[in-house]
Design a protein around this nucleic acid. Structure first.
Lengths: 245, 245
DNA sequence: TGAGATTTGTCCGTATGTATG
DNA sequence: CCATACATACGGACAAATCTC
């Protein structure tokens, strides 16, 4: 199922990395589920039309990522990792959304500060540009792996101090409840994908060339007042979204 | 606005390609809108911490993509910076969705055939695995650039012959209307992102390492009967999605 | 008109990374 | 492990086009 594809040279992406990306994708869509192993290096080399050394470099990178374990005399075992599914709907909640897909979920506040609203943030929160807003940087983990890195903006003075509550509870929903927001709805979500930037490499533990899914989301209270605008970055090899109509 | 990021070496992704990706992203988010030009090569080289030749290789790639036009003695002009926005909602329609964002829209049938339903397709269309279904491969263009490559499955015998109507009209909605489907709704959309595969390079005109947004969508008629299951691939540098709550 | 500054275009050589056999 | 070929990245120097004063 991984045939029909010569790999492209002189493209600025090393052959071993192109091959690593394709093997990762093949593992994700279950192509090797029957054996639980990657095909032998010589077979892969023939399939991709490259030298065995090049395949070895690709497998070595995937082994480094913790996705494979080579066993001499046996083959290269696949250590399966499922992709977390993150539902997006009018009632999007991070913790409920991931639900039972991970044993351990947590949210961490990395930093927070009050600052004047940029044009984009001001438009989203429906305030004048330059109005003070609260910015919170956070990291979400599932089973000890980073699944999102967010920057969220909240209007002031309504939510002054919410960062402390979030830091204590690890939940946005709980923190909002503390500020008398019993319910809220997801008004709009923009989804795009870009290559990992230097910040993603450290925050999300990614390699250069990796893919980051980016969402820009607006949440509002039941009266329609914007309460949060957030830009979040997700590692595409660990997360997907589902939009339920 | 493009600072704070040295670029990573020996990662299997050439520096010039990493830099090309970041400049493309900076163009897309409007960082250079004031001048309509990319900063001078020497400035970019200093920002990224690389030699000017390396920046030139990146700019050369973007010029090849039709995104830039260098002018000796003046600078490097930005030709194109729009990303098509594709709204996803209960009433998702491709043509209406793209709407006025492009002057010319078209859909082309590349291939179609009847085949037994795979496990995934059968589950989506709510038929028994192996039941014959109609598969249609299509390509959608906006202003002479490919914006999606889709594989869609339709239940049989209900939609036998719909490929011809789609090929003639270039519109799924029109073709469905021909089969007495006056209205339909988007039940579910899964969104993920992967690296471009060999097929994407030719179909969507992408370079290796490029990002492809993948959607798996189920449409149903007003009675809730599944009428179409489609897996579509979009070039992430030209397309983004918006989910409206 | 012209001199100087700025910016892209092209050449040289050299060291390292990638890919093959 | 080796040897070989090509791509990538760097450093420097200069030419050509454009703008400003």
């Amino acid at each position: 199922m991984n045939d029909s594809g010569l790999v492209r040279r002189q493209s600025g992406v090393a052959l071993w990395r192109q091959i690593a990306d394709r093997i990762r994708a093949a593992i994700a869509d279950g192509s090797y589920d029957e054996t639980g192993m990657v095909p032998p290096e010589t077979v892969l080399a023939a399939d991709f039309g490259v030298n065995r050394h090049t395949v070895r470099a690709a497998l070595s990178a995937l082994t480094q990522e913790g996705m494979l374990r080579p066993v001499q005399g046996v083959g290269t075992l696949i250590l399966r990792r499922e992709r977390l599914n993150f539902p997006i709907s009018r009632r999007t909640r991070f913790t409920e959304g991931i639900g039972t897909q991970a044993r351990e979920l947590s949210g961490h506040v990395l930093d927070h500060a009050e600052e004047p609203a940029s044009a984009v943030v001001a438009a989203a929160l429906d305030v004048a540009p330059g109005t003070p807003v609260l910015r919170i940087e956070s990291l979400r983990m599932a089973d000890a792996r980073a699944v999102s890195r967010s920057t969220a903006w909240y209007p002031l003075p309504r939510f002054r101090g919410i960062a402390d509550v979030y830091a204590r509870t690890g939940s946005v929903t709980a923190a909002l409840k503390d500020f008398a927001v019993e319910d809220y709805v997801r008004v709009k979500t923009e989804i795009s994908a870009v290559h990992a930037e230097p910040g993603d490499l450290s925050d999300l533990g990614l390699a250069p060339g990796a893919i980051v899914l980016v969402t820009a989301a607006l949440n509002a209270d039941p009266h329609g007042l914007p309460i949060q605008y957030a830009v979040s970055r997700f590692p595409a090899d660990r997360v997907q979204f589902t939009v339920e109509g």
